[in-house]
């Protein structure tokens, strides 16, 4: 069972994983359950009364359809927030956390190279990302009748969930890479926080502020959401961009990791 660093890491994550899966699917289900009440003429009028800028800033646009509603809520705000926090926690502990606690010395004194360790830990991080997004998909499918969100269709719901997993993977890669390069959990968390906040608002508001349009163009959230997977299905090009960014981050972080001293 626990033959490699990969299987051991996946196994060690199991308890936390359960909590994250419950959290992410719970948020998805709760939001979806509200859709029937949001989808009423009165509520639509109420929303129209809000300034357009504010709604854009928090990603609440096009909430009149099931796909638009879920895209603004489950997949627009709390879903990404939760999966990014999970990615930051897992990514920062993958190397930096182990190093700060002093556990890494023992593992790396074994016949395991630093490259192998970092790559196996990264692969182990993919598992909870994919599992929690699949759990979210299944939960949404299960309640799609009562919540009146069936119009999205199973394939597009899966597409939205996989985009969410990929968003988590990018931030997990960022946390792991910064942690590997610096040995500091704090730095890893900090990098995720900065990129997430700047990326999120840059994506939503960048186009409306002159000179900051480029923030939208490079934000991970653009590749996550702009293709509207809930409406249009999987966006392979966008996913590929996020995958390449993840890969480059992990390779760069591990390159530095391989060349530095481990902290005592």
């Amino acid at each position: 069972m626990l033959r490699s660093v990969f299987t051991k890491t996946v196994w060690d994550q199991r308890r936390g994983l359960l909590a994250w899966v419950v959290g992410i699917t719970g948020v998805g289900v709760l939001y979806a359950a509200f859709y029937p009440s949001i989808n009423s003429p009165q509520m639509q009028q109420a929303l129209e009364a809000y300034p357009k800028g504010l709604l854009e800033a928090i990603g609440m646009t096009d909430v009149g359809t099931a796909a638009g509603y879920l895209g603004s809520t489950t997949f627009g705000l709390l879903g990404p927030a939760l999966i990014i926090v999970m990615a930051a926690a897992l990514g920062s502990s993958a190397i930096a956390g182990d190093e700060e606690s002093g556990r890494l010395d023992l593992t790396l004194a074994h016949p395991v190279s630093r490259w192998s360790l970092a790559l196996q830990r990264f692969c182990a991080l993919l598992v909870p990302m994919v599992l929690s997004s699949l759990a979210l998909w299944l939960a949404l499918l299960a309640i799609s009748g009562p919540a009146q969100i069936g119009s999205i269709g199973p394939a597009n719901m899966l597409a939205g969930s996989l985009h969410l997993a990929m968003l988590g993977i990018v931030f997990g890669a960022l946390a792991l890479a910064v942690g590997a390069a610096t040995g500091s959990r704090g730095m890893a968390y900090g990098a995720v926080a900065i990129v997430a906040v700047v990326g999120y608002f840059g994506n939503n508001l960048g186009p409306t502020i002159s000179g900051l349009g480029w923030l939208h163009d490079v934000s991970p959230f653009r590749f996550y959401a702009a293709g509207q997977p809930l409406q249009h299905g999987l966006q392979p090009g966008d996913l590929l961009v996020l995958a390449v960014i993840s890969g480059v981050l992990v390779l760069a972080g591990t390159y530095r990791f391989d060349r530095r001293d481990l902290a005592v």
């Binding site: 606690s101 002093g102 556990r103 023992l106 004194a109 074994h110 016949p111």
Partner: peptide
């Protein structure tokens, strides 16, 4: 490292 046995000064494990 396969040929070496190592006991760290501060043996920390999960």
């Amino acid at each position: 490292r396969r040929r070496i046995g190592y006991l760290p000064g501060d043996f920390v494990v999960g």
